[in-house]
């Protein structure tokens, strides 16, 4: 069912939903960009629809809502430990189609990979309802169409900001609420059907590409800062940390925090031996995971083509171009056989 709501009615809905839900959306935070005089668009709790940034792409993805950057797994004392709860409220996430698709990839790792369920992730993930923001236009760096992630399914509400109000396609039990606040409307869903940036995914990647000189080139360019992975909606690696409280060393926490295969120490074992010291090797590892390794396990690609990695790279390395270069190398290799 579709409804049209003006801003006040939409806020009426948000107000009712807020009783039982925490609502997250991309928010533009003035002056919070890294460079002075710039803004940061990232996910924050909101109370009104006017807080939502509908125009710009968020620098960080909504993954941090269900996979927090820092998450306490256990609190412990000398004798026992306790598992923190996540509260009773549901979670509403305003996000774009690519990000909904990214959650599917996170689910694959946290809920299915290896046959064990990550209970911390599941507890948060089960509460999530998606309010999908329609992409009116593709951003320059997006390549969702190439990745097949331009469409979103599994949402509760699909929103088009239009004419000072919101056209919403509503599925499931929320229809009652929307009916109360909005008027009936017609809506056909629109998805991005073409991006400026296009990638071609190689069917397979072999050893010849692994040893290719492009990785040496990336080694000389990449500074291993990890921004690409941190902004990526599908990167899900983490590290565990035990801390003790300074005022009581017998009590502490076991936490997990995000980790990045691009950052020093990711493969370092106790004693110091590491496996991918070279930044080009890390770049290749990340790329292979996104467009090949994940597919080997789950049958589809990990990358959702949101293009955030290209947006945030301080060294202007384009991941999309790297994919295309690998694809070209493989095609060349096939021709030369």
């Amino acid at each position: 069912m579709a409804y049209w709501l003006d801003m006040d009615s939409f806020n009426g809905i948000l107000k009712e939903l807020s009783a039982d839900n925490v609502v997250y959306a991309p928010v533009k935070m003035t002056g919070k960009g890294a460079f002075s005089g710039t803004d940061l668009v990232a996910y924050r709790e909101i109370s009104g629809v006017e807080q939502i940034e509908f125009k710009e792409k968020s620098r960080f993805s909504p993954k941090e809502i269900v996979f927090p950057i820092t998450q306490t797994l256990l609190y412990f004392t000398e004798e026992e430990y306790a598992v923190p709860g996540t509260g009773e409220k549901g979670i509403i996430v305003f996000c774009r189609p690519c990000d909904v698709n990214a959650f599917k990839r996170l689910d694959e790792i946290f809920l299915r990979n290896g046959g064990r369920v990550d209970s911390y992730y599941r507890e948060l993930r089960e509460k999530v309802r998606f309010f999908v923001i329609e992409c009116a236009e593709s951003f320059d760096s997006c390549f969702c169409v190439s990745m097949g992630t331009n469409r979103a399914d599994g949402y509760d509400v699909f929103i088009r900001a239009a004419g000072g109000g919101f056209l919403c396609d509503v599925r499931g039990d929320l229809a009652t609420l929307f009916e109360k606040f909005g008027g009936p409307a017609e809506m056909s869903l629109r998805f991005i059907e073409e991006n400026k940036t296009k990638v071609s995914i190689p069917e397979s990647v072999d050893q010849s590409v692994f040893g290719h000189g492009i990785w040496r080139e990336y080694a000389s360019r990449c500074i291993a800062c990890g921004r690409c992975t941190v902004s990526c909606p599908t990167c899900s690696c983490f590290t565990m940390q035990d801390i003790f409280y300074e005022d009581n060393p017998n009590r502490g926490e076991r936490r997990r925090v995000w980790a990045s295969c691009m950052i020093d120490g990711f493969t370092a074992m106790a004693g110091g031996h590491g496996f991918r010291e070279d930044h080009g090797d890390r770049m290749r590892f990340k790329l292979m995971h996104k467009i090949s390794d994940f597919r080997k396990r789950f049958g589809y690609n990990m990358c959702v083509g949101c293009g955030r990695c290209d947006d945030v790279c301080p060294e202007y390395i384009s991941f999309a171009r790297a994919i295309n270069r690998v694809d070209a190398l493989m095609k060349e290799a096939v021709e030369n056989v």
Partner: peptide, 18 residues
């Protein structure tokens, strides 16, 4: 032998290839 944090296929540290 690899760096491993979770032991259950979540943390990603020990992934090699697929």
């Amino acid at each position: 032998e690899r760096k491993m944090c979770c032991g259950i296929g979540k943390c990603g540290h020990c992934k090699i290839d697929g």
